[in-house]
Write a protein that binds this DNA or RNA. Sequence first.
RNA 1: GGGUCGGUAGCUCAGCCGGUAGAGCAGCGGACUUUUAAUCCGUUUGUCGCGGGUUCGACCCCCGCCCGACCCA
Length: 500
Amino acid sequence: MTDTTQPIPQDDNQIITERRAKLAQLRESGVAFPNDFERRDYAARIHAAHGEKTKEDLEAAPVEVQFAGRMMLKRVMGKASFATLQDMGGRLQIYVANDITGEATHEAFKHWDLGDFIGATGVLFKTKTGELSVRATSVRLLSKSLRPLPEKFHGLSDQEQKYRQRYLDLITNEDARRVFATRSKIVQTIRNFMTGHDFLEVETPMMHPIPGGAAAKPFTTHHNALDMELFLRIAPELYLKRLVVGGFEKVFEINRNFRNEGLSTRHNPEFTMMEFYEAYRDYRYLMDFTETLLRETARAATGSEQVNYNGQIIDLGQPFDRLTIVDAVRKYHPEFSVEQLNDRAWLAAWFKANKAKFRESDGLGGLQLTFFEETTETLLIQPTFIIDYPAEVSPLARRSDSQPDITERFELFITGRELANGFSELNDPEDQAERFMEQVRNKEAGDEEAMHYDADYIRALEYGLPPTGGCGIGIDRLVMLLTDSQSIRDVILFPQMRPE
RNA sequence: GGGUCGGUAGCUCAGCCGGUAGAGCAGCGGACUUUUAAUCCGUUUGUCGCGGGUUCGACCCCCGCCCGACCCA
C-alpha cells in the first residue's frame, strides 16, 4: 500500500543522480520549470499543412513554427544536432546548430536528456532525405525529466509495467495511444448516436443504498454523516427506469459499474456500460437499434463494418443471427436432440457426467442456459443475438405473453463474449414484487448474487411505467472488439492490479 | 483455486553441465554542420523478485513466498 504520509523513497541510480545535478544547475541559473513558452503549432498539423511541400517551396515561402514536445531521439554531430520531439499528435524533427542558435545554446542543448520537454522556434525545411524539420532559431528546456525513458527502439514491453505505469506505455508505444484514442472516438460516436436519436443523457447515483439492476456482488462503503452502509452500483438500471416513470421516455447513461469479482482478461472490477431505455419499444426493436448502433460505431471508429479480431473477420455489416437458446445449441451442436435439450433430467445427468457446475434448484430453462454457456457461448464468433431467456434468471424482464416461463430478452454475443443484454422491461409492479421476493428467497438460500427487494422501485412502478425496452452495452468489450485487443486491461487506462 | 511460462543494469535481453554477471540502448568523456534506432573511440552502472536450504562455492539445483502473463475451474 502507498503510504501518503511518507516521501517516495529515493531509488536513484547513476542516471537519475546526474539528472538531478543538471536540474540543480538549472535552478541556480534561473527558472527551472518555465511556463511562459507559447506553443502555437502541433506536429500533426505541421505535417498536414506542410508535409507535401518541396524544399524549394519552403525556401521560397518560409514558414515559421513554434512547437514543443518531449525529446524522444537525439543525434549530436559536434557543431550541429538533430532531435525528434513528440507532442500529443505526432513527432517533428528539429535541427539545432552553432551557426543558427549560437554555440552556447547548442552546447546547453547537448546536455539535455531524452524525455526532457523542449520548446523550439524556427523555420521549416526539408532535409536531404526529405524529412520535414524545424531549423531552430531558439530552443528552450521547458521541463526536466529525471528518470530515463524505456529503451528508444524496443520501448516498454513488460506487460506489468505497461499497466502499472501507463504513462510510460503511452509515451513510448503508439499502439497504446491509438487504442485509447479509438476508445474516445467510440464513446463519442455512441453519445452522438444516442443524442441524435433524441435520447437524454443522464447521470444516476454511483452509491446505492440497495444494490440492484444486475446479479453481482457489490463493493460496500460507508457514509459517515448518515452512518449508513452504501454500495457501489452494480448497474444503473433501476434508476434509469425510475426516470422513465418520471417522463424521460428516452434516456441513456454511459458510466462505470462496479462488481466485486475476480480479475481476468475479460473482467475488471470497474468497467463502463452504456444503458439506454426507450418507452413504447420492445426487445425486438432494441435488437434492430443495437445492430445499427454497433454498425455505425464500427464504421466511425475503424472505417469499416468488417473488423479484424484476433485474425478473424467479424462482420458487423450483415444482419445479426437471432437464435433461441435451444436453437443456438442445436446449430453448433447438432448431436444434441431437441428432446434431450428439453429434458431436465438428461441435462442434469450431462452436467454430472461432464463435471460441469450447475444449480440443482434450477428449472429446465436455467439448465438449458447453463448448458448453452458450457457448450455454445464461446462458439458465437459472428454477432449473434440469443433470445427468449428463462424468467427465473431474468427478474427484471417482461414475460412472454405466450410462454410465461420465458422473457422477452436477448443477449448479444460477438467473439464468444457477451457484449449486450436487453429486454422488454417488466412494468407490472405486482409481478415485479413477486420476482423480488423470489430473489430474496434465493439470497437467503445462499445465492450471493441474488437481488434485494427494492421497495421504492416497486413504488415507482406502481405509479406506472409505460411499456419500455432497455439495453446495456459493455463499452470495454466493444472497445476490445474494435481495437483488436485481447485483454480488457489493454482498453482500460489504469486496470486494477495487486499492490506492488 | 490448479497448471504453464516469466521476474538479471534505467530499458531490451543473453548468461552452457554450479566456479563469483555480460551485450545493445540510455548515461558520462572525446571526434563529427543534413542525422534518421546516426556513426566512431573510450568508460561508469547490479539486493540476479524475496526468504530459506543443499554445496567448498548458487543467477543456475531444491523448498516456500511475492508479482505478472497465458490457459483452466
